[in-house]
Amino acid sequence: MLTRSFLNTPFAALAEMDRLFESMAAGCPPFAGAGLRPRGALLYPALNVYEDDANLYAEAELPGLALSDIDVSVTGDELTIRGKRQISLPEGAASLRRERPAGEFERTISLPVEIDVDRVEASLTHGVLLITLPKARSAQPRKVEVRAPIRPS
């Protein structure tokens, strides 16, 4: 299963891990269908997802990229992040350490609630991508007013 090309392309390796994990997660109730995995899974980019009443927030560390290198797409309840990181180091220089991930990546997660696709926003600040995903109206908690019973006077 491990071929040379597999080892030479970190993101391909990560994608393979992703697939493996996906198949494992399918049989594993806590993560089945959630599309969200435990800490330590080898996926790129790693994502932190938060929510409040109005939005979901997905955050990824993508240092060295411009917003134009990143493609964010949302369909209903799936979020996909695609991109490419090119690292150019001085030519002819001897490499002493190569740790930074480079190449193409793609990751899709399913979101726990329906999203208002038209109002999704993404920003990139100092290498941190933040995607704001407004929840569809139907997915937002609704405040129900509790009326006091009318008392007979």
Binding site: G64, P90, A93, R97, E99, P101
Partner: peptide, 20 residues
């Protein structure tokens, strides 16, 4: 994560420090 290279003139260190 870092990349470190040795050009003849200098050692260059590239470090990913997102959010800094």
């Amino acid at each position: 994560n870092v990349d470190i290279v040795d050009t003849d003139a200098a050692i260059e260190v590239y470090a990913d420090v997102p959010g800094a």
